[in-house]
Design a protein around this nucleic acid. Structure first.
Lengths: 339, 339
DNA sequence: CGAAAGCGTAGGATCGATCTAAATACCAAG
DNA sequence: CTTGGTATTTAGATCGATCCTACGCTTTCG
């Protein structure tokens, strides 16, 4: 028994088996209509008989389209990004692209590594939610002209951008609280090195001023954007003299932490104290009380981002584009206004 | 001005520029030591000068290693899978593999599509958490011998498997409850078409029997594995005559929903009613009361799965392997036993 | 009846790298 | 000034598909 080295079945084999040329076999595979019905049948039969598996890698080399797009996320563990990623993957798959995943865990160095790998792959384009850092001119921006790229959720200089109007969202929230009679409103959970956070705080401040309230820097309590962060912030919140009666939180996860801590302190959320979150994650609907929140629809964001990238791949030299989605307020019970 | 078609810079260009052959240029790129120092320097300079970008796709065609691995997840929105995916991606990246992502949303058809795309890519191996369904002989199993594949978190016939000892975890939980004096223990949130759920129910039943308690099918309350599912199950739970005094939940998300609903009904969790979850997701630590849960470490699971796949890629014909991680109980306050 | 037109198919070049085997360069010893 | 051996370098084939051009055959028509 000589053991067969198990060579790959290629178009050549198919062609030989069906008694046609590679070119013809290729035409059949690609479903080009110019092939005679009889020939097509014969080739298809050979394909099935020999168990041929298409090799897109080879095809891509020739056609110069890798059919792959890179998706670089700062933290796919965050439900918001997870949702957005799913939407992106779906949209790309619909256009026959494969998604290359890279999770950076907010690590700049890892981001650069992933970027390099994907570029060399070569991916035809890249979607990136840049890792947090001071300057926005980092690795991603450096590739700006070289490769179709789109930033989402967080901006990167020189890149197309799909994001949410965070300032507007914060304003909606503050106005809602104001209408319900709350006057001393805190902002919990921002962090100064995130553009998203800055924009939300800006909107918060603007809305306060517009409502005739004074912006008090003491009421802005920074924290990590996690449940724990929100939970811990409440201690500081309660120590503020002339204690706030409502809080706008950086995101839902923080808000849920805040609610828990407040209730543990005997403060009733929804009557007496108002809490609003950001993002409208699934859990927000099932908390007690239901969390009023600013819906930033990760799915739509993902779709918009993917759309931008596909467009840019088609027209690499078009001017930079930006899509800003408008958030809307989802009113539940955490501010006392049950609709 | 004639506009340059902006041809790609290839090894040929580098070779010409540096006055060497393609082969030599290739040696330099791959860091092969047989190249003379002077030559290497010259080539590197040309690479920088012309802005050469490596094209692994082309290399892969020749070397027959695509350097890509497929990761197919049933729902990356689930925190447990998200964590596992991150761990997988990291492990693969460490071994120089790119991760192709596919999210199936528990959809069999999508799973088949993704599987096909990845196989044709061609990925060198696939990690899959199969979508829920009756028979485990579906699309993934069909490719068993053809392509290195590993199933994780959920079994698939004929594939390597990395998972958690769910039965054992359930037993730990039940024993814990028993020791604390709970005698009427429900199981909330299973679904009969998930092998994971079956194993957990099995462990639950076995532990009951072992403790001298009787297994009562009425106490097994199925639901979707979501917060809402847990929340809604409580209504049924409270209607059972001779009401249970404790509940083991299918996972933490369900458990959190259960806790909320219980508290809303005025039942105090942690004193009077015990609740245990599964998975130890980050939120479990921050709930009120802290959720006692069975830790199934998604990170470890992901690493184990990736490891299995790498091994199988090396030795495609080795016998099927299985890794079962042992869970441990994380005791918090939801059963009244504060450590 | 021969040229033009149309359809289906085939052959060879090509994408951008790597591999193989062999050629060339370099250097010290005989 | 060979010879032998080591150190570098190279031409050409190759991976598996697609593109381009041309060619054979049949059909159409002046």
């Amino acid at each position: 028994m000589d053991e067969a080295p198990k060579r790959r079945v290629t178009l050549v084999d198919i062609a030989a088996d069906a008694g046609v040329s590679r070119a013809t076999a290729s035409l059949v595979i690609r479903n080009v209509s110019s092939v005679a019905e009889g020939t097509r049948k014969r080739v298809l039969k050979s394909i099935k008989r020999l168990g041929y598996v298409y090799h897109s890698g080879a095809a891509n080399l020739r056609t110069q389209r890798s059919n792959a797009v890179g998706l670089i996320v700062s933290d796919i563990t965050n439900p918001f990004f997870a949702e957005a990623s799913v939407a992106i993957e779906e949209r790309l798959a619909a256009s026959n692209y494969v998604t290359l995943l890279g999770n950076t865990s907010e690590d700049r160095a890892k981001e650069d590594r992933v970027l390099k790998t994907m570029r060399e792959f070569p991916a035809q384009g890249i979607l990136i939610c840049p890792a947090l850092e001071r300057d926005t001119s980092g690795g991603a921006s450096a590739l700006a002209g070289q490769l179709p790229m789109v930033a989402f959720a967080r901006r990167a200089r020189g890149l197309d951008y799909a994001g949410v109007d965070d300032a507007q969202g914060a304003q909606l929230a503050v106005e809602h609280l104001y209408k319900l009679g709350y006057r001393r409103i805190a902002f919990i959970g921002g962090s100064s090195n995130s553009s998203v956070s800055q924009e939300r705080v800006d909107g918060y401040r603007k809305a306060l001023t517009r409502s005739g309230l004074k912006f008090d820097p003491l009421l802005v309590i920074p924290s990590t954007p996690t449940r724990r962060g929100g939970y811990d912030s409440v201690r500081k919140l309660l120590q503020i003299e002339n204690r706030p009666t409502a809080a706008l939180c950086f995101n839902d996860v923080v808000a849920l932490g805040v609610i828990e801590a407040l209730q543990l302190s005997g403060i009733r959320v929804g009557s007496g104290f108002g809490v609003i979150g950001f993002n409208n994650i699934p859990d927000a609907a099932y908390s007690l009380p239901g969390l009023t929140t600013v819906d930033t629809s990760p799915r739509q964001l993902g779709e918009a981002a993917a759309e931008l990238l596909l467009k840019r791949i088609e027209q690499p030299d078009s001017p930079t584009r930006t899509v800003i989605l408008q958030p809307r307020l989802i009113v539940r019970e955490s501010c006392g206004a049950s609709t």
